[in-house]
């Protein structure tokens, strides 16, 4: 303890904790989120427009796939976000379970439908890309299959959340499920990959790799950042609404909503 205090002055630590506690207070979060959402939202919109313009107009067609590859500008960010949202959900759930911070439970719950949507988007774009590439909308490709299992995990989380009436209990139960899922997802991913190489041989070809051209990489990265900002904006919108719903009986909510 003495050592740590020597490195970080006690006042800084205390200030950090006060900030953390304030952040965990529903009203402070509600106001902070209200101020952050437009920033995240507009930044996401601008980057999305730039990324789409760069990806759909400026980037050259691929020498093998022609224009069909352009779906990666949606597909890859969506697939990354599908995993990111799950990890964020489990992380928030862990914080809620261990430190009993209600706000973390709210954030975890807000992640689930967004993550499920990103997963569905990745699946749909993946199968649309598969039609010209593999000649079929659905093949049991390793990544598509793990993505499908991930969608089931999200749906299970949402179903469990809907089945338990007591909000606190539902939040804690779903957090345990999300943590089990986080342990299992890498195992599922690698087992599916292993299953796939066993049965079908490697995929026809793989996107990415070090050979991706800069003209394609830049819009792709723009899209990745745009998706992430969009996720944060939407997550905050959902969390904000739920904070209102949970605190409906408190004075500040009535003040904010303008009810007598």
């Amino acid at each position: 303890m003495a050592q740590r205090e020597a490195v970080i002055p006690a006042t800084t630590t205390r200030r950090l904790w006060t900030w953390f506690h304030r952040l965990a207070s529903p009203r402070y979060f509600y106001e902070l989120a209200g101020r952050l959402i437009p920033w995240f939202g507009w930044a996401a919109a601008v980057l999305l427009a730039a990324g789409l313009y760069g990806g759909l107009w400026l980037a050259p067609p691929d020498y093998q796939q022609g224009d069909a590859y352009r779906i990666i500008f949606i597909h890859v960010p969506a697939a990354w976000m599908s995993l990111f949202a799950y990890v964020a959900m489990a992380g928030a759930g862990f914080i809620g379970l261990v430190w009993r911070i209600k706000l973390a439970e709210v954030v975890a719950r807000a992640c689930a439908p967004l993550g499920a949507s990103f997963t569905l988007l990745a699946l749909c774009t993946g199968s649309l890309w598969g039609k010209p590439m593999w000649g079929a909308y659905w093949v049991w490709d390793a990544r598509l299959t793990s993505e499908l299992v991930l969608l089931f995990l999200y749906l299970g989380y949402i179903a469990l959340d809907a089945a338990i009436e007591d909000r606190r209990k539902a939040a804690r139960a779903t957090s345990v499920l999300a943590l089990v899922g986080v342990v299992d997802i890498p195992i599922i991913h690698y087992s599916v990959e292993w299953w796939h190489t066993l049965h079908q041989g490697p995929t026809v070809f793989k996107l990415g790799g070090p050979s991706i051209s800069l003209d394609m990489l830049v819009p792709l990265l723009l899209m990745v950042v745009a998706f992430k900002l969009f996720f944060f904006a939407m997550m905050l919108v959902r969390a904000r609404t739920e904070v209102l719903e949970r605190e409906v009986n408190s004075a500040w909510v009535r003040e904010v909503v303008g009810e007598p």
């Binding site: 995990l153 299970g156 469990l160 089945a163 209990k169 499920l177 195992i187 292993w194």
Partner: peptide, 27 residues
């Protein structure tokens, strides 16, 4: 353990558990 307090938790249980069974099935 997660669904034992839920009424008619049977179908819900399958939704939670079956995706987690994937690696066992594969190996």
């Amino acid at each position: 353990a997660l669904t034992v307090g839920v009424r008619r938790g049977g179908v819900l249980l399958s939704l939670l558990v079956l995706p987690l069974y994937v690696p066992v099935l594969i190996f």
